[in-house]
Every structure is written in structure tokens, then in C-alpha cells.
Amino acid sequence: MELKVDRVTKQYKNKIAVDRLSFCLTPGITGLLGANGAGKTTMLRMICGILTPDSGEISLDGISVKDERYRNILGYLPQDFGYYPEFTGADFLLYLSALKGLDKPAAKQRTEELLDMVGLSDAAKKKIKNYSGGMKQRLGIAQALLNKPKVLILDEPTAGLDPKERVRFRELIADIGKENIVLLSTHIVSDIEHIADFILMMREGRIIRQGIWEEKNGNLEDFYMKEFS
């Protein structure tokens, strides 16, 4: 399984958000690091097929990201997402299960599993508007996993999580990353330092470094601070 990003460019009026990016993702965890405005979210949206590049191609084993077959195996957590005001946590997951093509019994079972996994079983019947920021974020993580995705794209997934939840999240992602492609975008180095197999660093729409971060290269955080200060 290989997700190929080939010379992808995206421009908004007079700002080039993503500038001729090329890389390949294989099963494992890839950390996408970059400061705010580096073009990470634009890149992720293009990988999810919800934003069309001005030029270049993105495909998974030859299947375009615009194809329903790709979206069927995709899990995505956007940086910012909303919910319908009448939804409880369980309703939210059941609704997204329906959009992901799960039948009702499978959706119900998967919803219960995931609510338990993210520690929201007790709050399943509560309206989302009464959830804390961390609870909403955990619900977001749960929805991304509904269809047992082979490609998991996470945009700032640890925002709002407390330290204990962050550790639990890393363990969960490390497990999923064993057999699936996981791309995790963040500007917090510690989120990916110990779990990422591959690092991509973006600045002003370009990749300034890509590869495996080895211990001999020193501390990733120090390198990041030096590059982005």
C-alpha cells in the first residue's frame, strides 16, 4: 500500500499554500511538522480528496483520492469540526457511520466499541454541546476510526487533550500505525517524537526535511525550534 503525492501545488489568490510537494507514504506513522500557516492543513485536505490541487496528483495504489473506493478506507480528523445541535455523542458516531456506509448493526457495535475506547461510554447519551473540549476531540478521534481506515489522516489530533489522554492517544495511534498509513499533522513535537516512523517538515508550502529521524541527528525538538524560530 502506497499513498503517492506527486508534484502537488495549491494556490489561494496570490499565496502559494503548497508548492510542488512530492512524497510517498507507506504503512506506519508519518509526522507532519510545521508552524501555523505552513500549508499542513491544505496538504491534508488535498490528501483527503476534499480540496483539489491546482496541479499534481495524489493516489493510493493508483486509485485517485477523489474516488469513492479511496474515501471508503479513509479516516479523517479535521483540525476543527462541528456537530448538529440535536446530536448526542452516540448519534454523532451513528450518523457518520451511515455516511461511511456501515449498516445499522455494524454501526451500533462499532459506535459502542469506539465510545468505550475513547472513554466516552458514560457520556454517550449526553448532548455534544455539553461536552468539554477534550471530550469533543476524543469523539472526533472516534469518528475517524469508525470504518477501520487503512489511511488515517489526523490534523492536530491532540489539541485539547490532557497529558493522560495524550499518552493514551499515542498508544492507540501506534497500534493502528502498525498496518495502516497514518499521517499526523502537528506543531507539537512531543506528539510524534516517539511514535513517528517518518518525519515530514513543512515551511511556507514546501518540505524542508523528510526522512526517518535518527537519534544521531540529536533532539527533534531542538532541530524544530532552530528551523522555525
Partner: peptide, 22 residues
Amino acid sequence: GRSQRYNMAELESATKYSLRST
């Protein structure tokens, strides 16, 4: 217009049934 109004459009776009179909 509900998806856009409640900021659900991005999530709904990345599912098997696209936002357009929904």
C-alpha cells in the same frame, strides 16, 4: 445548508458518500 452552517461539511466530505451526494 445545514452541513456548512454547523461546520460538519469537512467531516462529511471525507466519508464514503461525498458531501455532494449527501
